[in-house]
Write a protein that binds this DNA or RNA. Structure first.
Lengths: 298, 298
DNA sequence: CATATCCGTAAGCGCCGCTTATGCTTTTCG
DNA sequence: CGAAAAGCATAAGCGGCGCTTACGGATATG
């Protein structure tokens, strides 16, 4: 029978691209992984890797083997989750990936609740980019993702990674200072805007909203820190489109009005299907739901 | 992550009932397996076994874990089969279980063909009882089973073990000596019969056939060796119901006539679904099909 | 009640697998 | 275009995991 640890090494190679990177991720030296793979290839009886330049790439047989390895790891994860559920074991580490803008208030609140209700659970929060977050969750780097989705801007979908909505969050126009009297986006064609940095879904949505209203926004400030947005709006230096959760939790010393058409972002969680039974993961998710309020889904 | 070899040890314990037997099956000492299971239990965090008398039984958590282990082993088997297929590797060992009565001629013929066409394949043939054969195939003791099924007498069905028909084989009445003139079962109420030992499907079918014809057969000889049946019939000492394959291949110096209603037994192969892609298993099955004749299924 | 069976622990040792060291190839950069 | 860096493979050495042997406690069996 093939050695599962060696298969994991192969899987890591497939994910990282080089033996050196895989070894680093596994906490071994490159030599160790090289030997593991050589042994695996001997057992397999067919070439699994071929040298390509100064690196290696997987053969089709290697790719298939990696796919099977994933299946086995999925099953392994289910088995472990069942054991933890059996133990009543509300313990263990949950690796949580969040986007800055997505749920700062949600996550901090949930962490505080969890610290009291389930002290055995250790949550490691990592801020990351949406694209990586899903890929790395699929690759078992994270166990849970808190992400957001804007209208007409769907997040990437990975097989085996399931998502469940947390809260649908109204998008609000926040105006202060000289623009405090504005009642719609259309009246803010000449305003200074604060938005997130380019390339994010949030930024894209805000820009599109302005364009639909008939103008190209004058983005004077770009920051991924929503607290900064609030500050700028309160001082009348800029106007912004902010998520409702941000306004509710943090409060804001400025006028907020709903956007036309009442668009909403969807904040949702994502996790591997094979880890959805893990009681620790479930507990973290439940805590997030409670933070989201009784209106939250399922 | 849980250690797969230890999970296999747990699985073997679940199958065999005692640590000693599991150790024996795995080729280890009982002490080694005991230590493996202790380590596994430590990793799992929940009790997997409890002492019961002088043995041990699995806890529900242990049973669940064994079920997951089976899933992983299934995937592992598929992975290995894919590798062998990739290698074009018509090699390896196929463990074949047959029932004496089922397909003696079929199997011997197939083995001869295989020896020439695929010398790399090593076939280990074991004669066994139907009930064990399926259970042991499910438990990975055998890779392929050649079995038979009589009308109104279905063989046990195991999940994950698939079956494919090989040949539908007419059941014939073989008469010699003083009974050579008989044309139907009903005329043989006073004849001496040779049948298989009680408890087999074949025996049950033969008895039922006689009862339907209106008499309880006088079973003077019981043997699981069909060659002995042929001998007895040829010498006129008894009459018998014999499968068509037996008559065709071996020839018989007596009159054979079809049974009323043309009942047939079905000879079929069974194997784990996860091993159906193994080229060696497929080759053995193909060889059996060719023996069964061009009329054979699929 | 004696014996056999079975499980678990302790001690010891062999072997697998990791690390370090080195060489070769390929890519990158000055 | 040459030097340096990155990547992989092999050899040698050593530590730890996991096996075996040995023994004691517990429980069916005759």
């Amino acid at each position: 029978m093939l050695d599962l640890t060696r298969l994991v090494a192969l899987r890591e190679l497939a994910l990282r691209g080089t033996i050196a990177a895989a070894a680093d991720a596994l906490g071994y030296t490159a030599s160790a992984v090289s030997q593991q793979l050589a042994a695996l290839e001997r057992e397999a009886g067919v070439p699994l890797t071929i040298r390509a330049g100064r690196g290696v790439v997987l053969t089709p047989a290697g790719e298939r083997l990696v796919a099977r390895t994933h299946e086995m790891l999925d099953t392994m994860e289910v088995a472990e989750a069942e054991l933890r559920a059996e133990a009543g074991g509300l313990s263990g580490t949950v690796r949580l990936a969040v986007f800055q803008s997505a749920a700062l208030t949600l996550v901090t609140g949930a962490l505080i609740d969890l610290r009291d209700s389930h002290p055995g659970i250790r949550v490691v929060v990592t801020q990351t980019e949406p694209e990586e977050a899903f890929a790395d969750t699929w690759a078992r780097e994270y166990d849970l993702v808190v992400a957001e989705e804007y209208p007409h801007h769907s997040a990437p979908h990975y097989p085996g990674v399931i998502r469940r909505p947390l809260v649908r969050d109204a998008l609000l126009l926040a105006v202060g200072g000289e623009w405090a009297g504005a009642a719609s986006v259309a009246e803010l064609a000449d305003a200074a805007w604060v938005m997130e940095p380019p390339g994010t879904a949030t930024r894209h949505f805000a820009e599109q909203t302005c364009r639909v209203a008939g103008f190209e926004p004058d983005v004077r400030f770009a920051s991924s820190d929503l607290q900064a947005h609030v500050q700028l709006v309160e001082r009348g230096l800029a106007v912004a489109i902010l998520p409702g959760l941000m306004v509710e939790h943090a409060g804001i010393g400025a006028r907020v009005i709903p956007l036309e058409g009442g668009p909403r972002r969807t904040v949702f969680t994502a996790m591997r299907a094979s880890s959805r039974l893990d009681p620790a993961v479930q507990a973290v998710r439940t805590a997030l739901e409670e933070q989201a309020g009784p209106s939250a889904g399922s």
